[in-house]
């Protein structure tokens, strides 16, 4: 079934607060085989001009996945998750995510398209601190194969 164009602009309630832990950042960097000290050592991060250790550029996917699941499981979106693959991903960093950040994720449906029988759903997730400082914006495009 083709996605309803009326879904564009639909926004979801903000997520629970996610506190960025330094061990989580280190774990994520290790999973990428990245030994850069700026992800682990506060002194190295400060030498690079950051207040504390920062996260790799793709770390925001951890929060973006959770917020995006809210959209995918919306019955009014009606996407068949078993047929979904990740089509595209974009990160726009307003500043690096860092240890100690208390972040809230807000998901919005940015675009829906149907091309050659495949439904495509683009979700924007805005990550901001609990004080309202924008930190990162992610765009995820999911493709539901052959469902339209």
């Amino acid at each position: 079934m083709a996605l309803d164009a009326g879904l564009v602009g639909r926004s979801y309630p903000p997520s629970a607060v996610y506190e960025v832990g330094r061990e989580k950042i280190a774990e994520f960097a290790t999973a990428l085989g990245d030994a850069d000290p700026v992800y682990r050592d506060t002194a190295a991060a400060r030498a690079a001009g950051h207040p504390d250790v920062i996260a790799p550029p793709t770390f925001a996917i951890v929060l973006s996945l959770g917020a995006g699941n809210v959209v995918v499981s919306d019955p009014e979106v009606g996407i068949d998750y078993s047929r979904v693959v990740h089509g595209e991903q974009r990160f726009t960093h307003h500043r690096p995510i860092r240890a100690g950040d208390r972040l809230v994720a807000t998901a919005t449906i940015d675009a829906v398209r149907t091309v050659a029988g495949n439904d495509m759903l683009t979700t924007r997730v805005d990550l901001a601190t609990t004080d309202g400082e924008p930190v990162c914006t992610t765009h995820s495009m999911l493709v539901a194969r052959g469902t339209a």
Partner: peptide, 16 residues
């Protein structure tokens, strides 16, 4: 690694 500071990457996008 090339940039030196990972915080210098302000935008990153991919298509799978």
């Amino acid at each position: 690694a090339w940039a030196g500071d990972p915080g210098a990457v302000v935008e990153y996008s991919v298509r799978f």
